[in-house]
Simulated assay, not measured.
Amino acid sequence: MKAGALELGHDSKATSSVPKSGVNRGMSILELFIRIITIIATLGSAIAMGTTNETLPFFTQFVRFKAKYNDLPTFTFFVVANAIVSAYLVLSLGLSIYHIMRSRAQASRVALIFFDAAMLALLTAGASASAAIVYLAHKGNTKTNWFPICQQYDSFCHRTSGSVVGSFAGVVLFILLVLLSAVALSRRY
Score class of each variant (00 low, 15 high):
60 T>W: 13
53 N>P: 07
110 V>A: 09
83 A>K: 09
48 A>E: 05
29 I>L: 12
101 M>Q: 15
39 I>H: 01
105 A>S: 13
37 I>T: 06
76 T>P: 00
43 L>K: 02
76 T>V: 11
51 T>P: 02
97 I>Y: 01
104 R>Y: 14
43 L>N: 04
90 V>C: 11
31 E>K: 04
45 S>H: 04
86 S>T: 12
39 I>R: 00
108 S>C: 14
70 N>T: 10
51 T>V: 14
72 L>C: 11
110 V>P: 03
107 A>T: 14
106 Q>G: 15
47 I>S: 13
86 S>G: 13
32 L>Y: 05
51 T>L: 13
79 V>E: 02
48 A>S: 10
86 S>A: 15
71 D>R: 00
77 F>A: 06
106 Q>T: 15
70 N>C: 10
29 I>P: 03
74 T>I: 05
77 F>D: 02
64 R>A: 02
103 S>F: 11
87 A>C: 14
103 S>L: 06
104 R>P: 07
33 F>W: 02
41 A>R: 00
36 I>N: 00
30 L>Q: 03
82 N>H: 15
45 S>G: 09
62 F>D: 02
67 A>V: 04
86 S>V: 05
107 A>S: 15
33 F>R: 01
70 N>V: 02
42 T>E: 07
107 A>W: 14
104 R>H: 15
67 A>M: 08
92 S>E: 08
66 K>H: 11
56 L>C: 07
46 A>C: 10
82 N>R: 13
69 Y>G: 02
30 L>T: 07
111 A>W: 09
84 I>W: 11
38 T>Q: 10
43 L>H: 01
99 H>W: 05
68 K>S: 07
111 A>S: 13
72 L>D: 13
112 L>M: 07
32 L>C: 08
38 T>E: 06
56 L>F: 12
66 K>T: 06
42 T>Y: 08
35 R>Y: 07
62 F>A: 01
50 G>I: 04
60 T>Y: 09
112 L>I: 00
31 E>T: 05
77 F>K: 01
106 Q>S: 15
28 S>G: 08
99 H>E: 14
72 L>Y: 06
94 G>C: 11
75 F>I: 01
102 R>C: 13
55 T>K: 08
59 F>W: 12
84 I>Q: 09
102 R>Q: 14
32 L>R: 01
53 N>K: 07
35 R>P: 00
80 V>I: 15
95 L>T: 05
87 A>W: 08
79 V>P: 02
91 L>V: 13
50 G>M: 00
94 G>H: 06
49 M>F: 00
75 F>D: 00
35 R>E: 01
40 I>G: 08
89 L>S: 11
66 K>A: 10
60 T>F: 14
112 L>A: 08
41 A>S: 06
89 L>T: 10
57 P>L: 05
27 M>L: 15
30 L>V: 14
63 V>K: 12
57 P>S: 10
73 P>M: 00
